[in-house]
Amino acid sequence: MTDLMTHKIRIATTSLAGCFGCHMSFLDIDERFFTLCEHVVFDRSPFTDIKHLGEHVDVGLIEGGLCNAENVSTLREFRDHVKILVAVGACAINGGIPAMRNHIPLKECLEESYLVAVGIDSPQIPNDPELPLLLDRVRPIHEVVKVDYFLPGCPPSAEVFWTFLTDLMAGREPQIPEAQIHFD
């Protein structure tokens, strides 16, 4: 469980259909980040701005659920490259707030947003190939790939990140204490 060159744990992170709130909460470990950086190195992540995963990544932290085709591709890239895949936060775990659209047919969602809503000038559903296509429902990531750990919360508190990573660094099976478990 070490980086080949530096003997540090390589971590990659991303936000799919999320709000980056989980990443912000991760940063809330504050000065403990310095300690962390003695043991880990960041691969693909908004923290590093690296766009694609390296070959040997130990841990992938996924924020957000799956709302479009690009989310699925990104998730699969993570699953293919990381040893331990972690669903971080409510959206990755159960779809979260974006999944509140799930009981409305996608057709209605798109029509409402791009065709009929008040104030729309030239009604048209965006169809540029650069834009990811929406899935009919927002899905949690465990419905598409095997997930190894779950860190619940909206967002998970800095303490949860810290518990998880310190357990991992110490070679222990991560164990989130009851007091740190929350879904909001």
């Binding site: 909206c154 989130i176 009851e178 879904f183």
Partner: peptide, 24 residues
């Protein structure tokens, strides 16, 4: 959807899940 629910924090289902160590 706990994050937006008025009863979050007072909810027996949620608290029971915490008590059981349910993460996902």
């Amino acid at each position: 959807f706990c994050p937006g629910c008025e009863i979050s924090g007072h909810c027996k289902l949620q608290a029971t899940a915490y008590g059981l160590g349910m993460l996902d």
